[in-house]
Design a protein around this nucleic acid. Sequence first.
DNA 1: CGTTGTCTTGACTATGGTCAAATCCCGTGG
DNA 2: CCACGGGATTTGACCATAGTCAAGACAACG
Lengths: 253, 253
Amino acid sequence: MARDGEPSQFPKTGRFLAGRLRHDMSQSEQVELENMAGSIKTYPDGHRLIARGDVCDHSTILIDGFMLRTLESDDRRYGVSFHVPGDFVDLHCFALKRLDHNIDCVGPTTIAQIPHSEILKTMKERPHLARLFWFSTMLDAAMHREWIMKLEQLTAPRRIAHIFAEVWRRLEMVGLGFEDGFETPLRQADIADMCGATPIHTNRALADLRKKGIADFQRGAVRIPDRNRLEEFAVFTPDYLFGEGALYLRDYD
Amino acid sequence: MARDGEPSQFPKTGRFLAGRLRHDMSQSEQVELENMAGSIKTYPDGHRLIARGDVCDHSTILIDGFMLRTLESDDRRYGVSFHVPGDFVDLHCFALKRLDHNIDCVGPTTIAQIPHSEILKTMKERPHLARLFWFSTMLDAAMHREWIMKLEQLTAPRRIAHIFAEVWRRLEMVGLGFEDGFETPLRQADIADMCGATPIHTNRALADLRKKGIADFQRGAVRIPDRNRLEEFAVFTPDYLFGEGALYLRDYD
DNA sequence: CGTTGTCTTGACTATGGTCAAATCCCGTGG
DNA sequence: CCACGGGATTTGACCATAGTCAAGACAACG
């Protein structure tokens, strides 16, 4: 199943850009990146790795587990994006200095951190690798945009189906998908936060997906009998993930 | 009214990052940027500058007028973000190569374009300026995130109020706001596209804002009697714009 | 003046929120 | 092994927000 991203050779950063532009990284860039990453750390479910407004001097690569980017308002938490292994979750804050959002762990997670001084050095000495870093943050922006459209376009059951479709694809890109779905520590309340619905409505929407035979979400795993049916229901087109497809990049220059 | 951004000295790029990190640009960087920009062009209302999937070898700085980033699905147009003068509207595509979205003109617009070869040179020779470019794209991502939350959190009248509050502030940052509101060529249908509502519902929501005395949107201009009331109604906090406020950046390093 | 696009209004339906309560699930302690 | 407790999930009844279809008013422009 694992296609790209060699976690064995590069245990900390082997999944970075897997399925996208990893093929455009030279061996020496891959080694360089791996060496930039500091010691491996683990966090429990629900841990808030970074809070809005924190000044940060390092960025985090997610090795194992899942994370949620969140914003808070009126005592409610809103999910703005979801992260899977290989994602450079807060590279944004290298350019922004302060992060405008929180980074929350969903389930137990394993990470490594890269000091911003290393990234600055990369910008000065390795413009090609720097551009790949930039690319990875632009990928997040493209996913944000797609999600904005989907929030505007879709009803709750379809929004949830869209989340499932996207996460499944992204997990496959880093070698973590299964034939019939994927594993996830998400709770219904997390999904509610992610699609801006109440937990109660989310519950009914999940029941609807189950009844329709589109997706069966149960404690820790999503089973999807028919990918086409799911993606059609969710009006999901994977181009914006910049994997294979209409927007796929062969390489730079 | 104009605080930052000196369009006289730098007619093409003088508003870039005005109100944010422009103070962190050296005189030589400002000159360099201005020189990178090609000839000035104008486009009519509704012109689609770039379409999703286009491969681009230059990026556009908006000098005058307004633009809308849009995505299309099921024959409907969805606005994902709005742009004001000084915005580097499609710098994203330097890193992404193909753009995942469209760039549409709202009203007549004036722009200049910067070839990607120049930006590549900047990355190799001027890492500090390159980082400011990156910053400006991360600003877009931060605005996307805020908008995701607002879509999840707010009803239609409040969404519209939020758009007004944000656009007003951003126009002020580049010296184009007025005491009591701002001018805009937006139609009700555009606002509908931007907040994911039907034109009919948007019309009622605008009537609601008018009745409440929060904002009066009329052909080409928005009049806002009381900023505090608008921002409170919209649950608007300007931090995420990275102007003055909790997330403000003094400078890099 | 009529044509066209934009805006406005009305009546009805569907999607999602709120409050309240019941049930399920699983780890803990007896 | 079984009762207990707390979090997570499920169900029901009712209300609010937003979409749909249809039609009318308004304004700008020829």
